[in-house]
Write a protein that binds this DNA or RNA. Structure first.
Length: 250
DNA sequence: AATCTCCCCAACCGCCTATCC
DNA sequence: AGGATAGGCGGTTGGGGAGAT
């Protein structure tokens, strides 16, 4: 049988999005909100797969996105979170307002990995490279981690945790348990003692969307007039924005 | 100026999970 | 309970730009 493809492969456009397509997608979501991505292309008049629309929206068009390179503080937070969560980019991204998992993943692979290697730190285990080499002679990294006392200030690893720190699928879903700074030697080194407050309070919804939508118009390569909609003074449009905003406020 | 190489990042692919019926 | 479907996630790729030769 096999699974039905997420979209009709015939006639589905791939590759970079054009400004025109962006316009259509933004226009549609502003008017209808995010629902049923599978139906979005048809309803929005796009020859795209629903998945592609979702990705384009979440990774590029969302008005609450920050643009540009990660700041030093954001980068260090990513390193810390990666040490605790592994390659769970979406979880990491959820801790960095305005950043997407894709963006963080890309930044990790292109910048942070190299940076850590340069510092002599294994980007996978977050252990010093020479120490890591020694450690593999005697015991696995998992064993090493499991030797740590379960402590409320430490990362929580279950007894049957997987062998790689990048594969910590046994974390409690309650992530409030893991985010603590200072006990991990690497992050202590990177962060110092204090944990910077990165979460911009202004990012909190609601009310954010309408403010940031103006930002979208500046950030993107097109202006409000390009959307062909003058809905931003429109009460209904503002309501739709707020609806969207609450969708993001998980 | 032309060509080559490397790097970055947007986008795709395939798998997994959640939800619905 | 289990199959079908949609959404979400992480790994990977390829086009394009920047810098080197």
């Amino acid at each position: 049988m096999g699974r039905q493809p997420c979209c009709d492969k015939l006639g589905v456009k791939k590759g970079p999005w054009t400004a025109e397509e962006d316009k259509k997608l933004i226009n549609f979501i502003l008017n209808n909100g995010q629902c049923c991505w599978r139906a979005v292309p048809k309803l929005a008049g796009l020859c795209r797969c629903g998945k592609s629309c979702r990705l384009r929206w979440t990774n590029y068009l969302r008005p609450d996105l920050k643009r540009g390179l990660l700041t030093e503080a954001e980068e260090q937070l990513v390193i810390d979170l990666h040490a605790r969560l592994g390659n769970r980019w979406s979880k990491i991204a959820s801790r960095l307002p305005g950043r997407t998992d894709n963006e963080i993943k890309n930044h990790w692979n292109t910048h942070i990995k190299k940076k850590l290697l340069k510092m002599g730190i294994d980007p996978v285990t977050h252990e010093p490279l020479n120490k890591e080499a020694k450690a593999t002679e005697t015991t696995s990294h998992a064993d090493h981690l499991q030797l740590q006392e379960p402590n409320d200030n430490n990362i929580r690893i279950s007894e049957n945790s997987s062998s790689s720190p990048s594969d910590h699928h046994n974390f409690s879903s309650d992530e409030s348990n893991f985010l603590s700074i200072g006990d991990d030697p690497l992050t202590s080194c990177l962060w110092g003692v204090e944990t910077p407050q990165l979460v911009d309070p202004s990012w909190e919804f609601p009310g954010l969307w309408d403010e940031n939508f103006a930002g979208l118009l500046h950030c993107q390569d097109f202006g409000i007039q390009d959307f062909g909609i003058d809905c931003f003074d429109d009460v209904e449009a503002v309501n739709s924005l707020n609806t969207l905003g609450t969708d993001h406020n998980l």
